[in-house]
């Protein structure tokens, strides 16, 4: 009895600490958000930003802030959170700390669709802005589905190992197709496609924010509601069946959610990898592995990372995805070395 109460007390304490970490992360998002508003090709002082936000800025200042900077930052917040959540789900259900949305072919599927679109359409600017995100989403979903079904076996459903390996194989195939297609592009089309592939948050206007918002509004609460299922699934197949989880069904649902999250984010933000890997990892180190808290913390750290990377990318004129890779890779290698 006594032992139990001590355990409960320390547990409550730990939980409170974790939640305060989450609040701290949320504050960090706000701070990075504000810094990012100030930084860019044309510097705006915090005072200018404040004035402009409340409608007292010059025309030029409000154009920069409202039409260029803010949508891009808002998209960074959403995309960062989306990738990190998708990564968190994947790491939970595959029990593989190295899982990333790119792993199930989502990034490559979306990229393939974008290249196809660019190759088949003579003029990029003539098409309506919604087309590309939707196509990219379908590409992502299709690739995810292909990976899932190829990894499926009647005897034991989808095993973690097969998912990882099939993901690598499918990605190799898709990138072969992409290379063949890019050879047929003219230089202008090529530059557009390559910039998109490198993950440049290219569609940084309010329309894309509006395209992405509904997805997030549905998916984020859904994923949050599945936190306990994720806790169970991350224990492993045998244990979770023992605990009564409908393993395959829940896993499929969560996988679908991850694909939808990552797919919609890829569609708007371009192929950005590593966020889905690092966000959840940082979060796990900070708050532990209970998904009720972990999911929120992952989303927030994903946002922080992507806003920071995007701000650097704006200053240095390099695609965001490459900045993310430069930050993310060393961390990944470190993880790999110490993973069990």
């Amino acid at each position: 009895m006594a032992a139990k109460s001590i355990y409960a007390a320390s547990d409550t304490k730990r939980r409170a600490k974790a939640w305060s970490t989450v609040v701290g992360l949320a504050l960090l998002v706000v701070v990075v958000f504000i810094v990012s508003m100030n930084t860019g090709y044309i510097r705006l002082s915090p005072l200018d930003v404040g004035k402009t936000l409340f409608g007292f800025g010059t025309d030029k200042q409000s154009l920069i802030l409202f039409q260029f900077r803010l949508p891009r930052i808002v998209i960074s917040v959403l995309v960062g959170a989306g990738f990190a959540l998708a990564g968190c789900i994947l790491q939970g259900i595959t029990r593989n700390p190295l899982a990333d949305p790119g792993l199930i072919g989502v990034n490559s599927g979306a990229s393939l669709m974008v290249i196809l679109f660019v190759a088949l359409r003579p003029s990029i600017s003539a098409s309506p802005p919604y087309t590309l995100p939707f196509l990219a989403f379908f590409g992502a979903a299709a690739a995810g589905a292909v990976v899932y079904f190829l990894a499926y076996k009647k005897s034991d459903g989808v095993s973690v190992l097969r998912l990882v390996l099939v993901g690598i194989a499918v990605q190799a195939g898709i990138s072969a197709a992409i290379i063949v297609l890019t050879q047929r592009l003219n230089p202008e089309q090529y530059q557009f496609a390559a910039t998109w592939l490198a993950g440049s948050l290219w569609g940084a206007n309010w329309k894309f924010v509006l395209t992405l918002l509904p997805w997030m509004a549905v998916l984020v609460p859904f994923v949050m509601s599945k936190a306990r299922t994720l806790n169970v699934l991350s224990l492993g197949d045998h244990l979770s069946v023992g605990l009564g989880a409908r393993l395959q069904r829940e896993r499929l649902l969560l996988l679908l959610a991850a694909v939808a999250l990552a797919g919609s984010c890829v569609a708007v933000g371009g192929a950005i990898s590593f966020i889905g890997l690092i966000g959840p990892h940082l979060a796990r180190r900070l708050v532990g592995s209970r998904h009720e808290i972990l999911l929120a913390a992952s989303a927030l750290s994903g946002s922080v990372l992507l806003i920071a990377a995007d701000t650097i990318s704006r200053v240095s004129d390099t695609p965001t995805g490459i900045i993310v890779a430069i930050i993310g890779a060393p961390y990944f290698l470190y993880l790999l070395a110490r993973a069990r």
Partner: peptide, 17 residues
């Protein structure tokens, strides 16, 4: 295999940049 694919993803990203 995972490590390899990540290392190539990184190096490819850098080459693309």
């Amino acid at each position: 295999a995972l490590a390899g694919s990540a290392v190539s993803a990184l190096l490819l990203a850098l080459s693309e940049g």
